[in-house]
C-alpha cells in the first residue's frame, strides 16, 4: 500500500545537492522521482528511489539527516480529470494533502502523495477506484 520516500535535509549551500546525487550513484541507486521544497535557509529533498534503505544508509554515512517516510503512489492515466478525481476523493474524506509531486518513470505514471492520514488516504483512493503502486513496483 505504501511506498518509501527518502527525505533529506540539506542546507542551502553550494555543492550539497551534488553530494547527495554522488552518494546515490556510488550505491547504484536510481532516482525515479524527486521534489525539492525550499525555504530561505534549507531545503527538503524528497525522492522515490530504487533502493531506499541502501540510499538512506549511504546518506547518513555522509552526515546527512535522511529518513524514510511512508507515502502513497497513486497511479494516474494521462488524461483530463485524473488528478481531479484523486483530489476530489481525498477532499470528500476530509483528508489534507501535506505535499505531492509527480512520478513518471519507465511505464509508471503516478502522483506521490503524503496525506494527513496515510492509511485513510490509501483506503479512500482505492475505494474510489484508483490504483496504488506497491513498494515492489518501485524497486523493479
Amino acid at each position: 500500500m505504501f511506498i518509501k520516500q527518502l527525505s533529506v535535509f540539506i542546507e542551502n549551500r553550494q555543492g550539497r545537492l551534488e553530494e547527495v546525487t554522488e552518494a546515490l550513484v556510488q550505491e547504484n541507486v536510481n532516482i525515479l522521482s524527486l521534489s525539492m521544497a525550499d525555504t530561505t535557509e534549507y531545503g527538503m529533498l524528497r525522492m522515490i528511489v530504487s533502493n531506499p534503505e541502501t540510499a538512506k544508509d549511504a546518506l547518513r554515512d555522509k552526515g546527512f539527516s535522511a529518513m524514510l517516510t511512508d507515502v502513497i503512489a497513486v497511479k494516474l492515466q494521462d488524461k483530463v480529470g485524473e488528478l481531479h478525481k484523486m483530489t476530489h476523493i481525498l477532499c470528500s474524506q476530509g483528508l489534507n494533502i501535506e505535499y505531492m509531486y509527480a512520478l513518471a518513470s519507465a511505464n509508471r505514471v503516478a502522483m506521490i502523495v503524503k496525506a494527513s492520514d496515510g492509511e485513510a488516504a490509501a483506503k479512500a483512493t482505492m475505494d474510489g477506484g484508483l490504483e496504488l503502486y506497491s513498494y515492489e513496483d518501485m524497486c523493479e
Binding site: Q5, S7, A37, T39, Y42, M44, M67, T69, E98
Partner: peptide, 9 residues
C-alpha cells in the same frame, strides 16, 4: 528531523 517543512518550522 521531519519530512515536513511545517514541522521543521
Amino acid at each position: 528531523f521531519s519530512d515536513e517543512i511545517r514541522e521543521l518550522e
